[in-house]
Amino acid sequence: MAASVLADDGIAAAGGPLLGDAEFQFLRDFVYRHCGIALSEQKRQLVQGRLLRRLRALRLGDFAGYCELLRRDPDAELGELASAISTNVTAFFREAHHYELLENELLPQWLEHKRRSGDRLRIWSAGCATGEEPYAMAMVLAEALERAGKTVDAKILATDLSPQALGVARKGVYALDRLGGVSEERRRRWFLRGEGEYEGYARVHPRLRELVTVLPLNLLHDWPMQGPFDAIFCRNVVIYFDQPTKQRLFRRYAQMLPPGGYLFLGHSESMHGLSDDFELVGRTTYRKRA
């Protein structure tokens, strides 16, 4: 993934308004209801420090005013709130065994089947963060399409809740030191090195941008897409959800996958005891039962 994870960065709230008991309880309920994340009392200082930036940006004098804004129009501020209290952790080709399975086994099989049937191929990066995950998928997919020499309607959907993360994903511009997981051959093939004011940066190749559609989506709200997807990547996202939220999400993923479709989780995540719809077929790799 692509992950949105809570991490205490030690930001102090010195000189700013304090987050009172009532406001913190409201925020805890709001974040759980809309984001599926349970904020413990230990996260109070983190929430206070992170949200002070939003108070300043919105020119609000206290947290009561911010809570009132959320009550009036939850959707308008939800993405900013999620961005403020989370840290997007991702990298190109993170958990490489998933990409190796795609490249060596799944994509060749799928492309041959799609060519014969005329069906489309769809992969979903659910929680794409700043886009490294879906663009890594796009490299593997583009290369597989070339090797197969077949014309198949193939696309990758990349979704996230954070407006800031989605902005980076849409631009597809990354500092060169972010390309550590990309081989030298793929760097030459799939990135355009920046010059002038963009020195030290690289943009993903237009071919990759053609394959990836970046959209905002809250995993806990309604999903506008119908599916089906051949594979869903939801890595390092559900680790911060409680058990009932995970179970609901896995049921919804199962509805979006055909029998034999794949669901990829993060290295610290497991579906054990949470779903009967999937079977474990590899490291954090699950296949929907027939």
Rank of each mutant, 00 (worst) to 15 (best):
M1Q: 10
S4K: 06
V5I: 13
V5R: 14
V5P: 00
I11H: 03
A13T: 09
A13C: 05
A13E: 06
A13I: 04
A14G: 00
A14K: 09
L18G: 00
L18R: 02
L18A: 08
G20M: 02
D21M: 01
A22C: 01
Q25D: 07
Q25P: 00
R28K: 14
D29V: 02
F30K: 00
R33E: 11
H34G: 02
G36I: 04
I37W: 00
L39M: 05
L39R: 00
S40W: 03
Q42T: 12
Q45R: 09
Q45T: 06
L46R: 04
R53I: 06
R54K: 10
L55S: 01
A57R: 14
R59K: 14
G61V: 00
G61F: 02
Y66S: 01
C67M: 00
L70G: 03
P74E: 07
E80S: 07
L81M: 13
A82Q: 00
S83K: 03
V89Q: 10
T90Y: 08
T90V: 06
A91Q: 11
A91Y: 11
A96R: 15
Y99M: 06
E100Q: 15
L101H: 14
N104W: 00
N104L: 11
E105C: 09
L106S: 08
P108T: 10
P108Q: 07
W110F: 12
L111F: 12
R115M: 11
R116N: 12
S117F: 11
G118A: 12
D119E: 15
D119P: 00
I123V: 15
A126H: 06
A129F: 08
A129K: 03
T130N: 11
T130F: 03
G131M: 03
G131W: 03
A136I: 01
M139Y: 10
V140G: 09
L145W: 12
E146M: 08
K150T: 15
K150I: 15
T151E: 15
V152N: 08
D153M: 10
A154Y: 12
I156W: 11
A158Y: 10
D160G: 07
P163C: 04
P163M: 09
Q164K: 14
A169E: 03
K171Q: 15
L176E: 14
D177G: 03
S183N: 05
R187A: 08
W190T: 02
W190N: 06
L192M: 12
R193Y: 13
G194T: 05
G200N: 09
Y201G: 02
A202K: 02
R203C: 06
H205L: 04
H205P: 00
P206L: 04
R207K: 13
E210H: 10
T213Q: 13
P216H: 11
P216M: 07
H221D: 13
M225R: 12
G227W: 09
P228H: 09
F229E: 01
A231Q: 09
F233V: 07
V238H: 02
P244I: 10
T245Q: 05
K246Q: 14
R248F: 07
R251K: 13
A254C: 06
A254H: 09
Q255N: 10
Q255D: 13
L257Q: 05
G260A: 11
L263I: 08
S268N: 07
M271Q: 07
H272N: 12
L274M: 15
D276G: 14
E279M: 12
G282D: 15
R283Q: 12
A290P: 14
